[in-house]
Simulated scan of single mutants.
Amino acid sequence: MSLLNHTYSHPTTFILLGIPGLEAAHVWISIPFCAIYIITLLGNCTILFIVKTEPRLHQPMYYLLCVLSAVDLGLSTATVPRMLGIFWFNLREIRLEGCLTQMFFIHTFTGMESAILLAMAFDRYVAICNPLRYTVILAQKRITLIGLGIVLRPGVLVLPMVFLVGRLPFCSIRVLAHSYCEHMGLAKLACADIRANGEYDLFLVSLLVLDVILIFLSYVRILQAVFLLPSKDARLKALSTCSSHVGVMFVFYSPVLFSYLTHRFGQQIPRSAHILVASFHILLPPMLNPIIYGVRAKEIRERVLRIVPRERATCPCFC
Results as ranks from 00 to 15, higher is better:
residue 2 S to T: 12
residue 5 N to M: 10
residue 10 H to N: 15
residue 10 H to F: 11
residue 12 T to F: 03
residue 17 L to V: 15
residue 18 G to I: 07
residue 23 E to F: 02
residue 25 A to H: 11
residue 31 I to D: 00
residue 38 I to V: 15
residue 43 G to V: 05
residue 43 G to I: 07
residue 48 L to A: 08
residue 49 F to M: 13
residue 49 F to L: 14
residue 49 F to I: 14
residue 55 P to M: 02
residue 62 Y to P: 00
residue 67 V to K: 05
residue 68 L to C: 10
residue 70 A to V: 12
residue 70 A to S: 14
residue 71 V to R: 03
residue 72 D to N: 15
residue 72 D to G: 15
residue 76 S to R: 03
residue 78 A to R: 01
residue 80 V to R: 00
residue 80 V to K: 02
residue 82 R to P: 01
residue 85 G to T: 07
residue 86 I to E: 08
residue 91 L to E: 15
residue 94 I to S: 06
residue 97 E to C: 04
residue 103 M to V: 05
residue 104 F to L: 09
residue 105 F to Q: 04
residue 106 I to P: 02
residue 108 T to Y: 01
residue 111 G to Q: 04
residue 111 G to C: 09
residue 112 M to V: 05
residue 117 L to C: 11
residue 118 L to N: 08
residue 119 A to N: 10
residue 119 A to F: 08
residue 120 M to G: 04
residue 120 M to W: 02
residue 122 F to R: 12
residue 122 F to G: 15
residue 126 V to I: 15
residue 128 I to F: 03
residue 128 I to H: 00
residue 132 L to M: 14
residue 132 L to C: 12
residue 135 T to R: 02
residue 135 T to F: 01
residue 137 I to S: 04
residue 145 L to K: 08
residue 148 L to D: 07
residue 149 G to E: 14
residue 149 G to W: 12
residue 149 G to F: 12
residue 149 G to N: 09
residue 152 L to H: 03
residue 153 R to S: 12
residue 158 V to P: 02
residue 162 V to D: 02
residue 162 V to L: 07
residue 167 R to D: 12
residue 169 P to I: 05
residue 170 F to K: 02
residue 171 C to Y: 06
residue 176 L to W: 02
residue 177 A to R: 13
residue 183 H to Q: 08
residue 188 K to P: 03
residue 189 L to K: 02
residue 190 A to G: 10
residue 190 A to R: 01
residue 193 D to L: 05
residue 195 R to I: 04
residue 200 Y to E: 02
residue 207 L to P: 00
residue 209 V to P: 00
residue 214 L to A: 09
residue 215 I to A: 01
residue 216 F to G: 12
residue 217 L to Y: 06
residue 220 V to D: 06
residue 228 L to E: 12
residue 228 L to H: 08
residue 231 S to D: 09
residue 232 K to R: 13
residue 236 L to W: 06
residue 237 K to D: 13
residue 238 A to K: 05
residue 241 T to H: 05
residue 243 S to R: 06
residue 243 S to G: 00
residue 244 S to H: 10
residue 251 V to T: 15
residue 251 V to M: 05
residue 253 Y to D: 04
residue 253 Y to A: 03
residue 256 V to R: 01
residue 256 V to G: 00
residue 261 L to V: 14
residue 263 H to T: 14
residue 264 R to F: 01
residue 267 Q to P: 02
residue 269 I to A: 06
residue 274 H to Q: 06
residue 288 L to D: 15
residue 289 N to T: 14
residue 290 P to M: 09
residue 292 I to V: 14
residue 297 A to V: 10
residue 302 E to F: 01
residue 303 R to C: 06
residue 304 V to C: 03
residue 307 I to Q: 01
residue 309 P to H: 08
residue 311 E to W: 07
residue 313 A to T: 12
residue 317 C to T: 14
residue 318 F to V: 10
